[in-house]
Amino acid sequence: MRRPGLDRRPPQTAPPARGFRKALLLIERSTKEAIWDCRMCGQCILHSTGMSCPMRCPKNLRNGPCGGTLQDGSCEVVPEMKCVWVSAWEGSRRLPLWRSHMAHVERPTDWRLQETGSWENLLTGRDRQVPAGWNAGANPRRAGGAERTA
């Protein structure tokens, strides 16, 4: 039993997945690693990124490509690899429902969720937790616009 205020471990690191949760984790890991080279970030946004796993990006970018993409579309860090975000853009054009999600601003990575199952985190809502400040205030886009034209 976790006692609030005493156990300072993030919930994801304890206890280790057992039983049904472990089975779910194993199924997710084996399928997603095989198909998408998934890195088990525990907060999956594959559908927003044209089914190209953003954690394969050497810079772990979750909001689009850096400025270093080479002219032939390959990665600046690993030139043998196609830029994850070039694949994401191409993939997103083929997704009828989610193509507009490419332009969504994704929340900062919660590094505590590494190696946990994103299916479980989806079901429990754990992957929707964001730091309290992230959504502070009005929509900055509107605020910016008002400021420009004021």
Binding site: P65, C83, W85, V86
Partner: peptide
């Protein structure tokens, strides 16, 4: 603006 994916 000069690196792929240009449309994005």
């Amino acid at each position: 603006p000069f690196a792929p994916p240009l449309e994005f």
